[in-house]
């Protein structure tokens, strides 16, 4: 439980940390599109280079990044195996009952795992380099047009911010409640489905009671801080697009172009890189 790194901010003063949250949000979306665009290994390598570059620029320790992969390791293994076994390829190496391991299957499952790893790394990089407040502020700002159709954009942002803040607190709490019930002889990993579901009650009920109690106090704390006092709320964190954001956008755009080009052929990619190079030179 304590290994949950998704959504944890890693303080720093790097290029990426200083970028505008809105820019980073948009770029992460562009990155996700890029990952899904990649078709062959060359283009995957390009995406990987993009991630490696982004990690280097962000100065997040590689160990931290690996930890985020560790969190989804089971999903990766599962995805890999499933694709490996069930892919209907032509060059079959090994086959048993419904399972076929083929060359195409291997390639496909490696791609799928790689895709997941890249997606997680890209999005984790956002949460590592952007404070949760930054992310929620950024989302709020990007969603501003929705205000005009009466969407309570600011309230949504505060709710998200609070949710992010309480994830580590509540996960620690689950840990503690589980230990306490185990100490009273409870076991959570034996018996059938029904008895296992029942065994969860001694965790779920205290957790919900605690969440409600916290919510109650939090509501008072929000009131004490004059939440909703004025519609003309000001912002402490100003968001400004700067040269870093422009550079980040251009860099990402270059990689998207590169990926698309590599999908077709190597020379196309060369020309694409050349043209981007020219863009920078100009």
């Amino acid at each position: 439980m304590k290994d949950v790194t998704l959504g944890q901010y890693y303080p720093g003063e790097s290029f990426t940390h200083k970028m505008d949250a809105r820019a980073k949000l948009v770029l992460v979306i562009a990155f996700i599109v890029m990952v899904f665009l990649a078709k062959n290994f060359l283009s995957y390598i390009a995406v990987m280079l993009c991630v490696i570059g982004a990690v280097l620029v962000s100065r997040i320790p590689v160990s931290k990044m690996l930890k985020s992969i560790k969190a989804i390791i089971m999903i990766l293994i599962f995805t890999g195996l499933l694709n490996l076994m069930f892919y209907n390829g032509e060059t079959v190496y090994w086959s048993w009952w419904r399972f076929n391991v083929s060359l195409e299957g291997i390639i496909f499952s490696v791609k799928m795992v790689l895709r997941l790893v890249l997606l997680v790394m890209g999005t984790t990089l956002l949460t590592f380099t952007t404070t949760p407040t930054g992310i929620t502020d950024g989302m709020e700002s990007l969603m501003t047009p929705l205000k005009y159709i009466k969407v309570p954009v600011h309230d949504i942002a505060v709710i998200m911010s609070i949710a992010l803040r309480f994830i580590p607190i509540l996960s620690e709490e689950v840990d503690k409640i589980m230990m306490a019930q185990k100490a009273r002889g409870a076991s959570f990993d034996t018996g059938g489905l029904v008895s296992r579901a029942k065994a969860l009650l001694p965790i779920l009920i205290p957790l919900f009671v605690s969440a409600f109690r916290r919510a109650d106090e939090l509501a008072m704390a929000l009131d004490a801080r004059c939440y909703n006092a004025t519609p003309n709320r000001t912002r402490y964190q100003v968001m400004k697009f700067g040269w870093r954001d422009l550079l980040g956008a251009l860099g990402t755009a270059a990689f998207v172009v590169l990926v698309v080009a590599l999908n077709n052929n190597f020379w196309g990619a060369y020309r694409a890189v050349e043209s981007v190079w020219w863009l920078f030179a100009v």
């Binding site: 901010y9 404070t131 949760p132 407040t133 992010l164 607190i169 916290r214 939440y227 006092a229 402490y236």
Partner: peptide, 21 residues
């Protein structure tokens, strides 16, 4: 734990004044 809204300290301290405009 139940009276902090932001995940960065300065933002939490700023929350009240922000609400007051």
């Amino acid at each position: 734990d139940n009276q902090m809204v932001a995940s960065v300290i300065e933002n939490d301290v700023a929350f009240g004044p922000e609400n007051l405009g």
